[in-house]
Design a protein around this nucleic acid. Structure first.
Lengths: 85, 85
DNA sequence: CTAATATTTAGACAGTTATCTAAATATCTA
DNA sequence: TAGATATTTAGATAACTGTCTAAATATTAG
């Protein structure tokens, strides 16, 4: 679970998750919302992927990213547990 | 809110929060559970303090740390919002 | 097949973080 | 007050992170 908190500790990555709430997006589409380069974005997506917070899936020409809701639920439970006595 | 996720991204700090769930503890008492030096622990406590996740209060000879529940609630809300469409 | 577009990988670099030792500050006890 | 205990501050260092440019890989279109 370490990776999840690490992944959430960067504002760009939280914003990516926020964008993906509305709908799945390709890297290029995500990129429009940021001023960082492609490789930097790719790096952030990799961290989110490894934390299992997002899922990447190629659809023809593009790779679409989407939220991994099930991991969110687990993380939420973990988070609540972290504070409840 | 950036500081909260950063604070939570370290396993030692999460363990400190976990210890404080049971009861308030002095630095020396917290230290018993870790193999890091005093200054390192002090550094972690400072980060938790600045994220408002804990409160420090001197009681005579010792400084006791306790969970700041209200900030936990805010953070939990933020966390849920981060994922709910 | 070649060129164009989409995305990732490799390698470098500056800034941040976790850790340490040594020293400073604060409080208590004798 | 002097010495012991509790905690923090200062300064150093190695590892990690976010960013970049250049190059590699994958897919589509002509």
């Amino acid at each position: 679970m370490d990776g999840v908190f690490k992944a959430l500790s960067d504002p760009n990555r939280r914003e990516i998750l926020n964008l993906l709430k509305k709908k799945d997006l390709s890297v290029t589409e995500i990129q429009r919302h940021f001023k960082i380069t492609g490789p930097s974005l790719s790096h952030h997506l990799d961290i989110l992927k490894r934390a299992n917070l997002v899922i990447a899936e190629r659809r023809g020409q593009f790779i679409f990213y989407s939220l991994n809701i099930s991991v969110f639920e687990e993380t939420l439970k973990m988070f609540i547990k972290l504070f409840s006595k």
